[in-house]
Every structure is written in C-alpha cells, then in structure tokens.
Nucleic acid binder design. Structure first.
Lengths: 202, 202
DNA sequence: CCGCAACAGTATCGACTCGAAACCATTTTT
DNA sequence: AAAAATGGTTTCGAGTCGATACTGTTGCGG
C-alpha cells in the first residue's frame, strides 16, 4: 500500500497554510483578511462572464451572503467597483479599481511562492502541474462543483480563425487574452452535457 | 519565460480551497470550523515535543491567543484533553480524546482527496511530492519559519541501532513510530532529497 | 398581460476567528 | 531576591461565515 497520495495531500495543505499566512501578512498592512486578497486576485483573473458576486462566491467556496459582506468592505476601501449589468439589472458586475490593481501589483502575494520554486527544474514543475491538474479535475467531477477553467480546453470554446475565438455557449467573440481568463461556465472537454430531457415518470 | 510556477501555485491554492470547503462540510456536522479539523489532524500526527498549544499555533499560522480560544472550544466539546506537563508547569499538553479519535476516523476528511488521486500513477505522484517538498523546504527557509518535519531527515536525529533512535537535541530515545510523527523542533539536514528517477511524461 | 416562481443580491443575527494587548503563573537569568 | 523571559489565558474589537429573511428584477405559464 502506498502512502504517497496522503503525503501529497499534507504537502498541499501545508503549503496552502503557509501561503495563507503570507496572505495574512500582506493583507494586514491594509487591514484586510486573507480572503480579501483571494477575492482581488480572482477578480484580476476572471473573464467577462465571471466578475459577479455569485461566481466569486462559488470560486471561493462561500455563500452569497458572506460574499456580499466582503465586497461591501472592499468597496468601502475603494479596492473594487460595483456597477449594474445592462441586460439584467439584478446582476452586479465587479471590477478592480485602480487602487485595487495597484495594491495587487505592489503586494505581489505570490512572489514568495515564485521565489520558493526557483531551485526546481521547469520540467519537474510541469510534471507536478500535470498531476495536480488531473487531481483537480477529478475532484471537481466527484463533487460536481463548477469547473472554473480557462477557455482553452472548454467544451464551448470555438476557434474561428488563427486568432479569433468564440464562446459557443454565450455566443460572443473572444480575444486571445480574454480566452485565457478564468470562466465559471467552464466545462472541460469530454464532459457529457446534461440536456433537459422529459421525464415520463408518474 | 515560464509561467509554470504561477500555474502550480494556482493549482495548489485551488485544491486547498476545495479541501477547505470539504473540511467545512465535514466540520459543520459537529458545528465546528475548518480550522478545528486541522487542529485535530495535527494532534493526531504530532510527536511528544509538539503536542502543545504553542507548537500547534505555529503549525497552523495563528497566534497563541487565537489557538487558546479554539482549544477551549475543542475541550468543551470533549474532542481534546489538556493536562499539565510534569517538568514545566507552565506547559499544557494536548491529546485527542477517544471521542476526538473517533470523530477523525469517521469523518475521514482526506478521503475525498484520496479518491481524487486514484487515476494518477504512483510514479507521477511521487514526482509531484518531491517537487512540492522541495518548494516547502525552500519556502520555510526563506521565511525562517519552523520546519515541522518528521525525525528522519532531521539534523538532531541519531540512529542508535537497527530499530532504536534518539533525538540529539532533547536526548530522548525514540521508537520507530514516534520518529515518524511531526516535530516542531525539526531542522533539516544539509540536503536530504530522496531523488527519484527523472523522466518526462506527457 | 397578469401573477408567481426563480433568481441576484442585500441585510441582519449569532457563533466563531483572529490579532493585539494586558494579564497570570511559572521558570530562568542576573 | 528581583527582573526578565516564557507558556497560556483573557478580553476586546473588527471581521468571517452560514442561515434566514428580505428586496428588486426577470421570465414563465396561464
């Protein structure tokens, strides 16, 4: 019997704890909590469909109520801006304010990490990435939680030409950079879509 | 320029978030917080020098005040027991109560993880482990945070005979199982990397 | 076109986290 | 013996977080 998976888990957990502590350190300069840093970082990487409180809450594993609170705070501090969606006026859209962007670029929360991996060969890192990526996919599958991936590798992703893409689900054209951001509608290729089917029971 | 370290970081963070959500789910059955699960799990793995509030606080990246609170709660719930140290009466020692052990073994918080890694070859896992372990060591070095490793690979670890060990720092004899637990006095030797055969996959 | 369910988000409450600082009881140092 | 250091506890205030109730918007079925 092999204990490696267990060990891997402990490593991931421990590293995450340390990064969390690092986040806390960085965040406390601005009187923020770790989760706020994560929220800002998410916003910096979310695509146009995913910059809502709802998507954010799902990404961070919180309820919408909690998310609302945190966003209130970030808004008060002027780190994010909230504005209404044109089409659906229930929806709130979020964006980093310039202060928010500046804060992120100054704080560089992942710098410590970058530094910690400096001695590891790119090859080994790529191997680790591939293993963890697979773990993540399986995990999300098991828990039927949302995919949250970039467009490349999404079932709805369509390539119109060399440099023009399109989301088959929403029907929008996507620029290259946009297609590299995080999307909460992401469905990995190879996943079977659940169509609405009529049920004739009872 | 290579973005792999960045990607690796995102994966670790995301996996940790998901596990955290899983912890929350498990914990909420008993009206606990994720951090309580981590505390119990730590206690189950800590050696005789490391079962104190202080060590725990450092491991989890909290202050002693906060730790004290959480332990109060875990004590009230009957999941841990606190008792005084014989030699130094300031020191509080902790141990899992039988209820605590039972809870851990029933909840099996890392089961979801185990399951998520089922499709990944042991070899790839070992590679990932080795890369992350190195990252962890470097990280701890950079931040001069405590090592928190098992005795094997510790500078103070001495092998008396085939099956008898000794901690050179504290001067105690250690059993084999004991030497496999987590110690907060851990100081890594020069460079102890169980290297694995290099190979590229993909 | 109306009515009602579904939905996105907000507000409120209570238990808990968390750091900071003050505090207490024991060593340890001087 | 006095002072400093150490391991823990207590207290305080701001914030997290889930649960629940609520507001306003959309969209669906009659």
């Amino acid at each position: 019997m092999d204990k490696s998976p267990q060990v891997l888990f402990e490593l991931v957990e421990r590293l995450a704890n340390l990064m969390r502590a690092e986040f806390r350190r960085v965040a406390s300069d601005e009187q923020l909590q770790p989760v706020h840093i994560q929220a800002l970082a998410y916003l910096a990487r979310a695509n146009r469909y995913s910059n809502t409180p709802q998507a954010m809450a799902e990404y961070l594993g919180l309820t919408k109520g909690t998310m609302s609170q945190s966003l209130l705070l970030l808004d008060r501090r002027g780190l994010v801006e909230r504005y209404q969606d044109d089409l659906d006026r229930r929806v709130v859209r979020l964006r980093l304010s310039s202060a928010g962007e500046q804060f992120l670029s100054e704080a560089q929360p992942q710098l410590a990490w970058q530094h910690a991996t400096r001695n590891i060969s790119p090859n080994r890192i790529r191997n680790a990435v591939s293993a963890l990526r697979e773990t993540l996919t399986t995990f999300q599958d098991d828990n039927e939680s949302r995919g949250f991936g970039a467009c490349h590798g999404c079932r709805h992703f369509e390539r119109l030409s060399a440099r023009a893409y399109r989301c088959g689900l929403m029907g929008d054209r996507l620029s290259g950079p946009e297609a590299r951001r995080i999307c909460w509608l992401h469905v990995p290729k190879g996943t079977v879509l659940e169509e609405d089917e009529d049920e004739d029971e009872e």
